[in-house]
Structures are given as structure tokens and as C-alpha cells.
Design a protein around this nucleic acid. Structure first.
Lengths: 133, 133
DNA sequence: CAATGCATGTAAGGAAAAATGACATTGCTA
DNA sequence: TAGCAATGTCATTTTTCCTTACATGCATTG
């Protein structure tokens, strides 16, 4: 998922009334889950909850866990864990990107030092654009 | 766009407060555009407006038209037109699908009547599955 | 220029929706 | 049976939204 999508998915959009319909949870339940640290929706200036897509997904997760008989404490840990998995994935992703960037730079260097026929070498000064200053 | 997505995009989700932030239009403007027939958001039981994604898109359209100096009457017509274009596209789409289905049935028939070597003919009774009862 | 009309601002008064807090209920489980 | 976890319910207060009405700024037109 790209950065833009993540922003969208975290954008506070829905009041609790809509969320109750989307999740079929009662306001009481949703507020309780917040109190128990399972979700932390944003608030408006006037202190009203505003939920994002991710919040709604999380609530649906919570609901399905509850239906499986897991209690709040258990769910809290499950959610923490899946959060960590997500973060790890993100890290792995950026690491991979960095790696391939370094690879790219190495290749460019090679190409400049030993230009092969049929490939256009970079002009003087252009290489610098591929390195951090 | 598939049917499921369309449902999603037409689902009434946002109260006017959120929409003002998403579009940077004032409530006054939004209500006026509704009065002028440019949008028709759903209402809650208690008569409060609820906007869908499509409504928000539409408002952004309206906004950009206004910024180009088009007046409400003009925009009303533009929107009508683009609505018609959409409908035409949908029609074309379903027509195409129907056509290819008929084509498929024709081919299946051909295949049964004149089975070519290397192709497996249908078993007796299977053809009926491809026709409406 | 005065008059008109369009698009928007603003304010009042009322109603819906949401917040919090407190107490009640239900279903387990020790 | 007592106790806890999860949820229901109710009262009260805030916040958000609704409609209606009047005001304003700006462009057009006679």
C-alpha cells in the first residue's frame, strides 16, 4: 500500500453513528473498546469521535475476535501483535527499496567507469545527482 | 467499476461537517447547491444530510466548474450531461456483455453440432446450463 | 446610475446526535 | 454465591446540524 492510500485510510471521517451501522456494534461497545485501549479514534474540536477506515477495520477485527470468544485483554494483545507485524513489513519494504537503490548506484558507477558500447555514458557532473549531498 | 464498488461509492457516510473539510466548501454553499438541484445527499432519520463518496466527488466537480467561472445553471447542465455519459457507458458495457454471452452460446451450439477434433464435446444435458430456463 | 439577480455570509432558534457518568443487567467462573 | 467482564440503559450536557430570514458583494442590464 502506498503512502497516499495510508493517509486516506487514516483520515478521520466517520462519526460514531455511521460506524455503528458499518460494524453493527453499539456506541456503548465502541466507547468501551476505546476505554480499554483497543482503538483511539480522533476527535473533532468539540470532542466528538471521528473514525477512519482503519478504525472501522479494527472494530470489525475486534468484533470477530469477540465472536470467537476471545476477551478484551486477549484482543488487546492480538492487535498489538498485528500492529507489530505491519510495522515490520513496512520496515522490510523500505529496507528492500534502499538496498535496490544502492544497487542502482553501484551499477551506475560501474557504467561510468567502464562504459560499454551502445550505452550512453552520463555527462560530467550528472553522477552527483544519484548520491546524497 | 463493479457493482460492489458502486454500492460503496453511493453509501451515505459523511455528515456535512466532514464534507466541508474534504471539499473546502462552506455548509451554506453545499446546501445551496442542493437547493439548486446539483446534488441530493441522503438524510438520516432526523433529517441530517449524509453524503456519499460520489456526492463528495460531485461537489469537487462543482467547485472546479465554479472556479472556471461557470454559473449554477451551467453546472447543472454539465452534471446532467456527464450523468448521461455515465449511463450510456454502463448501457454499452452491459450490451457488450450480453453480446459476448450470446456469442458464447452460439459457439457452444456450433461446437456440439459440429465438434472439431481435439475439442471435447459437452456431455448430454450440459448445454442446458447455458440457457435461461 | 439604479435596479435586479446570483452566490454567499451571517444569525436566531430549534432539533438531532454525541459525550460523559452512573447505575443496572447478564453470563461466567472461582 | 460473590465477583468480574462486557454491555444495556438513562439523565444531562455539548456539539453539530437544520431551516428560515435577512444582509452583502458583485456583475449585468435597462
Amino acid at each position: 500500500m502506498n503512502v497516499k492510500d495510508e493517509l486516506r485510510r487514516n483520515m478521520p471521517l466517520f462519526p460514531i453513528g455511521i460506524v455503528t451501522k458499518l460494524t453493527e456494534l453499539t456506541p456503548r461497545q465502541i466507547r468501551y473498546y476505546e476505554q480499554q485501549g483497543l482503538i483511539s479514534p480522533e476527535r473533532t474540536k468539540g470532542n466528538q469521535r471521528l473514525f477512519s477506515f482503519n478504525d472501522v477495520d479494527r472494530l470489525l477485527q475486534i468484533k470477530s475476535y469477540l465472536e470467537k470468544g476471545i476477551n478484551i485483554a486477549g484482543i488487546r494483545e492480538m492487535l498489538k501483535q498485528s500492529q507489530q507485524v505491519l510495522e515490520a513489513k513496512r520496515e522490510a519494504e523500505t529496507a528492500k527499496k534502499e538496498l535496490s537503490e544502492r544497487e542502482l548506484r553501484r551499477m551506475l558507477k560501474q557504467q561510468i567507469i567502464h562504459p560499454r558500447r551502445g550505452q550512453i555514458p552520463l555527462n560530467h557532473g550528472e553522477l552527483s545527482r544519484f548520491f546524497r549531498h
